[in-house]
Design a protein around this nucleic acid. Structure first.
Lengths: 185, 185
DNA sequence: AACATATCAGACAGATCTGTACGTTTGATT
DNA sequence: AATCAAACGTACAGATCTGTCTGATATGTT
């Protein structure tokens, strides 16, 4: 038997990803997860908290997937950057991909004082720091600049792939990223 | 005296840009524009129609600004691509910039059958076609591929600049785009 | 068997949003 | 001055959403 909290997060994740956050009401989430409304509010004191947990879990799953894939490769120095591009393309290209969650959340909650917006900004910076660490490992001097540019390219690619699925945006983002990386080596 | 229709669109544009679309209710729009609710529904039969008109006008203003700037330059062949990058950086870097409207609209209305989403997808493709035309003029062979990659870079840059204003995302998008363009020449 | 705890089911309050209706006021034209 | 259309102001219907509350039901422990 699955944990009640897990069931809620799973249903919420599914709905947030496919319908958007604001369009996924509490009643819809409890209907999908099969749990009672009072149970939801027992584990998550507010919808905002649920959204933040959703964002953090999506992020954690992404880094977990990326780290294990990168570790198994054991690529040395610069090779790891190209492997990274390959993996990011894969991540964006899966049919289940629906756009970067913190992207969508920041658009749906544009108020800079809103906790969901704050969380989104934090996760966006975390991604850049993650990419910068890899760039540093690869021996790139201006690691942070490259990291920010890679973030731009893959976030843009994610956005366009979501807007026009099957347009090959992920693939073109990858090749653009590779061209850029080579100019830094 | 300003046209009533113009006053509505102006107020709606201001609110949509700064607060987002769903967070800008009809009552707020009429309060800001100083017109009556019945007048709004006379000129725009629904909020969806108003949003679509807003998107189209923002798009038209963007291309109008870009075209006049590009024409005055009279750049020849490949030069026009670099001038384009300079202008796109400028567009994204202005303090009033709040993200690409069709981007935000497509996130707030993710349903593919919704008229606002349809309009967003259309405008996204229009941007790619516009960029492709310039790339063709510049003599790039794979003009459409480059156009899609430029769209990725500047849409990503726009997103990151909006998420973390002042982070220099626009500038880094420009330099990444220039590196990419050079690889095509 | 009895009790305690977790979960369920659903009604409800309070707020908000879109779109309609209706009577009043303004302003331009004849 | 009289008329007429446009715009105003506001109330209201109907829908939806978050979060609370209450009582019923299930589960597990002693």
């Amino acid at each position: 038997m699955k944990n009640v909290r897990e069931k809620i997060l799973e249903a919420a994740t599914d709905l947030f990803d496919t319908r958007g956050i604001n369009a996924s009401g509490i009643d819809l989430i409890i209907a999908q997860s099969g749990i009672a409304k009072s149970s939801l509010y027992k584990y998550f004191p507010s919808k905002n908290q649920l959204i933040v947990e959703y964002l953090k879990e999506k992020s954690a799953r992404f880094y977990s997937w990326l780290n294990t894939k990168l570790e198994t490769q054991k690529a040395t120095s610069a090779e790891i950057l190209f492997e990274l591009c390959e993996l990011l393309e894969q991540w964006i290209s899966t049919p289940e991909f629906q756009g970067l969650p913190f992207h969508i959340a920041s658009v749906e909650f544009p108020d800079p004082t809103h906790p969901v917006n704050n969380c989104s900004v934090e996760l966006s910076k975390e991604l850049q720091n993650y990419l910068a660490d890899i760039a540093k490992e690869a021996g790139v001097k201006e690691a942070y600049t490259l990291a920010q540019q890679l973030a731009i390219i893959f976030e843009g690619g994610a956005m366009l792939e979501r807007l026009s699925p099957g347009s090959g945006a992920a693939k073109k983002a990858k090749s653009a990223a590779i061209t850029l990386i080579k100019s830094y080596l």
